[in-house]
């Protein structure tokens, strides 16, 4: 059977197809992660009309512009506070934050920690491309030690944030990490996390061949995916002290935390209102 040339893709129903091809570079991982997110959404059987997706600024921030559903493109680092507002106003909706490492744990790092601490009912998809891609490849708080970036031409002297450890320590109820190669497991993880409540974090390590890979001996997307294939190890419930990303060591991926039935901020807020006023919300 020869290949069939067609005009539409199976995921087109979720996308603003008039905006395709998207802006991401050839070989970038964000498109694959968005694709896996849509597969996860389908597997979880979530009605897109019951979903709000919030992005911040950066390459991953562009996700909001391509989804054909209610999406919000917010200011830099403020995707989480915006999403908290949405969820408290519309507790009936699923709220997803889909943004990058620079936006969520660097510029917006404090929001991230406190939302995890309060157990705000959000599903956070954090695409970690290990640098500031959109602005030209500067070092960030997620750049591994010794990596070369435009602002660390002799190697990064800082340690990076260990994001799963940070999230878990702050109180996140679901913590997983995959890469842009592990798209199937990522989709399953997203589907599973949709059916949990509270602050859920899925970190997806992604390739930015254009600004990061090029300077670190992996000039195209395929080189970086082979790096993910050969240098990752799946360890569910891993000791999170060992999940820092180092260039010369295997990157630990898997599902690390899955706590059910911890009350969310929203449940407790509405519960308190009910108790004090003696009426249900909306009455």
């Amino acid at each position: 059977m020869p290949m069939q040339f067609v005009k539409y893709h199976v995921r087109d129903k979720y996308l603003k197809t008039d905006r395709l091809p998207h802006i991401w570079c050839p070989g970038c991982g964000i498109g694959s992660i968005l694709n896996a997110f849509l597969l996860g959404l389908e597997k979880a059987n979530i009605d897109p009309d019951k979903l709000l997706v919030v992005s911040g600024i950066g390459c991953t921030g562009r996700v909001a512009g391509y989804l054909n559903m209610d999406t919000f493109h917010t200011t830099h680092g403020r995707a989480i506070p915006f999403a908290i507002g949405l969820k408290i106003a519309r507790p009936d909706m699923h709220v997803v934050v889909f943004s990058g490492d620079g936006d969520l744990v660097t510029i917006g790092g404090n929001h991230f920690i406190h939302a995890a601490r309060r157990n705000n009912d959000l599903l956070v998809i954090l695409v970690n491309n290990l640098n500031y891609g959109m602005t030209g490849g500067q070092v960030g708080a997620t750049t591994p030690h010794n990596a070369i970036t435009t602002t660390t031409p002799y190697g990064n002297i800082e340690d990076d944030f260990n994001i799963p450890f940070l999230a878990a320590a702050a109180g996140a109820v679901y913590v997983a990490r995959w890469t842009s190669l592990h798209v199937r497991r990522l989709a399953w993880s997203i589907a599973e996390a949709f059916h949990r409540k509270g602050f859920r974090l899925i970190e997806v390590i992604s390739q930015c061949p254009t600004t990061f890979g090029r300077r670190n001996k992996m000039p195209n997307g395929l080189d970086m995916l082979k790096w993910f294939r050969d240098n990752t190890i799946v360890k569910h419930n891993a000791d999170l002290r060992e999940t820092r990303i180092e260039l010369n060591r295997k990157i630990v991926i898997g599902k690390f935390i899955d706590i059910k039935d911890k009350p969310t901020f929203e449940e407790q807020a509405y519960g308190l209102v009910e108790k004090v006023r003696g009426v249900k919300r909306g009455e």
């Binding site: 290949m3 069939q4 067609v6 395709l20 091809p21 050839p26 070989g27 395929l222 995916l225």
Partner: peptide
């Protein structure tokens, strides 16, 4: 099981992921 492969040809940016994996 056999599959049918479909392609929206002009969207492809030649990354080679499908070919490699």
């Amino acid at each position: 099981r056999r599959g049918i492969v479909y392609l929206v040809k002009d969207r492809c940016k030649g990354c080679g992921f499908c070919i490699e994996f």
